[in-house]
Amino acid sequence: MKTTYREAARAALREALQGDPRVFLMGEDVGRYGGSYAVSHGLLEEFGPDRVRDTPLSESAFLGAGIGAALGGMRPIVEIMTVNFSLLALDQVVNNAATLRHMSGGQLSVPLVVRMATGGGRQLAAQHSHSLEGWYAHIPGIRVLAPATVADVRTMLGAALREPDPVFIFEHALLYPMEGEVDEHPGPADIRHAAVRRPGRDLSLISFGGSLPKIIEAADRLATDGISAEVIDLRSLRPLDIATVTASVERTHRALVVDEAWRTGSFAAEVSAQIMERCFYQLDAPVARVCSAEVPMPYAGHLEYAALPQTDGIVQTAREMCGRG
């Protein structure tokens, strides 16, 4: 059936709340307001204030409380309104959620799911446009997922709740109105593998989350030029399914990684390094990256557009890699 990314995310939450009495949702304005992006709209009425909890603006306290509740046998889903505000809870993520199993010698388990909106492109300027998935992917002890399709946002939550470790799900805010196909009663997603969204021969376009539609559009345009691009959706950033990536690059011999984060220290840098380590002798061109400009995100629409990866730039870089510059 056809639905939107937003509705699919809500259906996943509803299914999780229906399926397990230990599951509850908490975050800022998830209840009476219905969620900043209307993802949790109607859930308070359906499940009550005990299981759909509006929190104060205390990211560190309620994310930490999610960790504690998970230690105490619950299955919390914590919504951080946006990745930008998650910085206020980083201590709990880095020092507690990610460490407790190992630091306790395997005695403790933190089955926590954290969801948050991410990304730029809506003229929200320098404090509301971050793409920090790569920062989170740096941290051993947590899993990082980036659902880029309606089907993935529908099914990744259920899979995340089955994990005994903390899982962070990044939903690009521009994807919420996107329409797509999803089964009416889908099973939990495979969250261990990247997906080949479109097969191709001449180069691999590799990305995740909000940039997936851009690389698919780029692949369409390249096809009209006679360039066959394979589209790889990473889906999980930690752990990274590098095998799917290298298998693709071994077929196409060219890799272009697209990432909405700043280029320096980006997740694209990690993917690029791993391709170089594993596929150096199969490459017909240096691995290329299209990332955001190294600037705090400007408000003005034309400047923001120029700062973010766009299909034009992806197509242009891909053409150059294929000797069609």
Partner: peptide, 25 residues
């Protein structure tokens, strides 16, 4: 004994969450 937390203040939210689990259960 849910442990020693070495970032000052970092254990308090964990305690709140443990208590939340007790209350919900």
């Amino acid at each position: 004994f849910f442990g020693g937390y070495a970032i000052v203040g970092g254990g308090l939210p964990i305690a709140v969450g443990l208590a939340l689990a007790d209350k919900m259960k």
